[in-house]
């Protein structure tokens, strides 16, 4: 784990997958692999981040991701604090910068930030002196989700290169889809997106994906079927006519899944809308569903991210201590 050179990961923040190289992604996944093993032992705690402070700032509520980051920080020995700025205050927006400045004054070493607006984490990262991890910003990116998905696939199939992955559902609003498309493309997988045209952003093909409007065609011969969550408020006639119609054409059930390879694996970033985008029988099929492994990988990947992004901070600390001694 500690064989990775400082400086090999030249980014101060992790704001997105776009812009990361295949080597950098591989480095993060390799590091994560080690943490998976650690997390399966009885003693899960290390002191890699001892003395460091990690603040999880979730402007948008999320139990799952926040818990995963919190656990990751604690298992590495950091002091972890969770903040959920008041939802009514953040709607005014000014408080994003105010919050950033306030948090910065507390000398955190890492901020993990989730926000409902695309670019908000980027904006915040410009105002603070510590590393920032994007825990999901609007419809832009959710890099740790893509990394944990990649780790899950790589551990199961041994590679990413050459695989065909279909990402299905609400691509338009999905930061998970964008991060996964960037990551899988960078690692040499073939990516398809499958959705009704109203849930596909214009020009999505420019990201190097194949576009399908038919679920069976889209998942045919795929190694991985990655389902996305469709928020219920988007199914009341604004983007698709009804939940019923959506499930009929785009919900993953055994019938549609038969179009994929017999050994195709199923993923979902959670939380699932059973009966909307995915049928319970499929979601709970332990031979094909990777959904619980994804959650497990999430903690390991976030440990790797925290570890890598704080190495410079720790190294600088030692240097400045050394200088003081002289």
């Amino acid at each position: 784990m500690s064989t990775i050179n400082r400086g090999a990961f030249p980014h101060r923040h992790l704001l997105g997958i776009e812009g990361l190289s295949a080597d950098e992604i591989t480095m993060l996944l390799d590091l994560s692999d080690g943490y998976v093993e650690q997390n399966r032992q009885k003693d899960k705690k290390r002191s890699v981040l001892r003395g460091l402070t990690v603040i999880n700032v979730f402007f948008e509520t999320s139990t799952r991701t926040r818990t995963s980051f919190e656990l990751a920080g604690k298992r590495l020995g950091a002091d972890v604090i969770n903040i959920s700025p008041d939802a009514s205050a953040i709607k005014k927006g000014e408080t994003l910068i105010d919050t950033a400045m306030t948090l910065n004054a507390m000398h955190p070493d890492v901020l993990t930030v989730r926000h409902a607006d695309s670019g908000a984490v980027h904006l915040l990262s410009e105002k603070v002196a510590c590393a920032v991890i994007n825990a999901g910003d609007g419809s832009h990116e959710h890099p740790t989700q893509a990394l944990l998905d990649a780790l899950t696939i790589r551990r199961r199939l041994g590679r990413l290169h050459g695989l065909t992955v279909a990402i299905c559902g609400d691509i338009l609003h999905s930061r998970v889809a964008r991060s996964n498309i960037h990551l899988l493309n960078t690692m040499g997988a073939r990516v398809r997106v499958v959705a009704p045209p109203t849930l596909l952003p214009m020009h999505i093909e420019r990201l190097g994906v194949e576009v399908f409007n038919d679920m069976r065609e889209g998942i045919a011969d795929c190694d991985i079927v990655m389902m996305l969550r469709l928020q219920t408020e988007r199914m009341q006639g604004s983007f698709v006519p009804s939940t019923r119609e959506y499930f009929h054409f785009f919900g993953l059930d055994a019938g549609k899944l038969s179009a994929a390879r017999p050994d195709a694996l199923i993923m979902h970033p959670g939380p699932m809308n059973r009966g909307v985008e995915i049928d319970s029988l499929v979601a709970d099929d332990i031979s094909r569903s990777l959904i619980h492994e994804q959650v497990e990988m999430g903690v390991a990947v976030r440990m790797a991210c925290l570890d890598l992004l704080t190495r410079d901070a720790l190294a600088n600390e030692y240097e400045s201590e050394a200088e003081t001694r002289q």
């Binding site: 670019g119 930061r175 214009m202 020009h203 999505i204 420019r206």
Partner: peptide
Amino acid sequence: NEGELSMRLGLTGIP
């Protein structure tokens, strides 16, 4: 503007 950049940035575009 709605275009490739708005898609990449995850922003709602105006066609």
